[in-house]
Every structure is written in structure tokens, then in C-alpha cells.
Design a protein around this nucleic acid. Structure first.
Length: 227
DNA sequence: TTTAGGATTGACT
DNA sequence: GTCAATCCTAAAC
């Protein structure tokens, strides 16, 4: 059995593009329990957030229209939108709706269900140094993909993956997994956004230990405190 | 050209 | 609970 078959054994068949050709707030809860795959690593999603289109959602990167950074969100559905933030982190989204509409779902957290060893090494501080397992503090399994930047690292997604088509049988795909019954889905305000936080477009699996802890947005101070 | 601030995280009190 | 790290983006000038 090859890598593909092993992954499909635990993650089911890949989702096709039609899955993403719907509004992001409809796709988002349907993504819970689904499995995002990159090579040998697979993550079962436990928490996502929907972001809307131009002029509709003040929290969305596309609210003010197309820019070089957000151009992938204006493209066809089922593509990966990876962005850099806080000077050090990458986060990953799956684009929804037809080209031109520019909405997406942020992948916030999940459980690593395949490739745990690879994911753990990626999540170690200084994984490229001489001190590997046993010498560096081991990240608990539940924390491997608990948070959007952590999930992106665990899956090995980087800047260059921005724009990747996830519905063409390539190395990065979304698989059907097992959808979560609506009774187990919880919704609430989105995390860390300074505007539009009142829209309850964060979705997570009730009671799942891999869901990230909620943190309200805190505007950061700049420069030195004076006087 | 300058500047504010960010879809976060890990360390620390 | 607080805070710094760190660089990119887009808006303002």
C-alpha cells in the first residue's frame, strides 16, 4: 500500500472542488471532522473560522478589495491561501466560492491523525539543531496543531504553498473524514480579530481537546512607555 | 516615504 | 494575568 492509500484509509476520499464552491460560513462547519493532508501528515479539523468577501466582512483580508497579498482569495475555490502575520507566523485558509467573490475558511486547529512523528519534529524549537528528541521538550500530542500557526507548521505549509490547488490530486488535499453532527458543533466570535468580532463565524467541535484556547483581541502597544 | 498594527505564540509574573 | 518577538502589508502622508 502506498502513502496515498494509507492516508485514504484513515481520511477517506479527497473532497472535490464543489465542496468549496459555497459560502465560507456554510463550508466552515462542514469542514469540521474533515482531514487536511500534506504528504504523509494528516490533520483532522476541530476548529475553523469563516471570513467573508469584499465590502462584507470588516475582519476579512479582502474587505477593502484586491491586493497582492490577498489575490489568491479572489481566485477559484479549493485553493490554499497562506499569509504571514506578526512578523513570524504563517496561517492557512481554504478559498471558498467562485473566482471574484473572495471568501475563505481559516484552519485554526485539529488533531494530527497521521505523520505524528514528522509533525512533532516540525513543532520542536530548533528542530534543525543537534538536540532532537529527548533533548528538546516534547510538544504534547494535543498541542501539535492546536492553533492556526501551529497547525500550519505541523502540516509543513510555508509561504510558497500560497495559491496551491488542493482539489487536483496534488500533495495538499482535503479529505472527507467524517462530518460532525450539528449537535456537536459550537459557534462563537472569531479569535484575535479587531473588527467584525461580533459575527459568530468561529466553529469548533464541542469538547474536543485540540480546540485552541480562546483569546480576545488585545491591541498591541508600540514603542517605549514614556514618562 | 513613513507608520500603525496584525486572522499568534511562547515565556514569564 | 502580562509582554515581547519580528517583518510584512497597506494606508496615510
Amino acid at each position: 500500500m502506498g502513502e496515498r492509500e494509507l492516508i485514504e484509509d484513515v481520511a477517506g476520499a479527497p473532497l472535490d472542488r464543489d465542496f468549496f464552491d459555497r459560502p465560507s460560513d456554510v463550508v466552515a462547519p462542514d469542514l469540521l471532522g474533515r482531514v487536511v493532508v500534506h504528504g504523509s501528515v494528516a490533520v483532522r479539523l476541530s476548529e475553523v473560522e469563516a471570513y467573508g468577501g469584499p465590502g462584507q466582512d470588516p475582519a476579512s483580508h479582502t474587505y477593502r478589495g484586491r491586493t497582492p497579498r490577498n489575490s489568491v482569495m479572489f481566485g477559484p475555490p479549493g485553493h490554499l491561501y497562506v499569509y504571514f502575520t506578526y512578523g513570524m507566523h504563517f496561517c492557512a485558509n481554504l478559498v471558498c466560492m467562485p473566482a471574484g467573490s473572495a471568501s475563505a475558511v481559516l484552519l485554526r486547529a485539529g488533531e494530527v491523525i497521521a505523520g505524528v512523528h514528522t509533525a512533532r519534529i516540525r513543532r520542536m524549537p530548533h528542530a534543525d539543531g543537534p538536540d532532537l528528541e529527548g533533548l528538546v521538550r516534547r510538544v504534547p500530542d494535543r498541542d501539535l496543531a492546536r492553533g492556526p500557526a501551529r497547525l500550519t507548521v505541523a502540516l509543513g505549509l510555508v509561504r510558497d504553498h500560497n495559491g496551491t490547488d488542493c482539489c487536483s490530486g496534488g500533495p495538499i488535499r482535503a479529505h472527507e473524514g467524517r462530518p460532525v453532527p450539528s449537535g456537536q458543533i459550537r459557534t462563537g466570535p472569531r479569535t484575535g480579530v479587531s473588527t467584525g468580532a461580533e459575527t459568530p463565524w468561529r466553529f469548533w467541535i464541542d469538547g474536543d481537546p485540540t480546540v485552541s484556547p480562546y483569546r480576545a483581541h488585545i491591541p498591541r502597544r508600540r514603542g517605549r512607555a514614556t514618562s
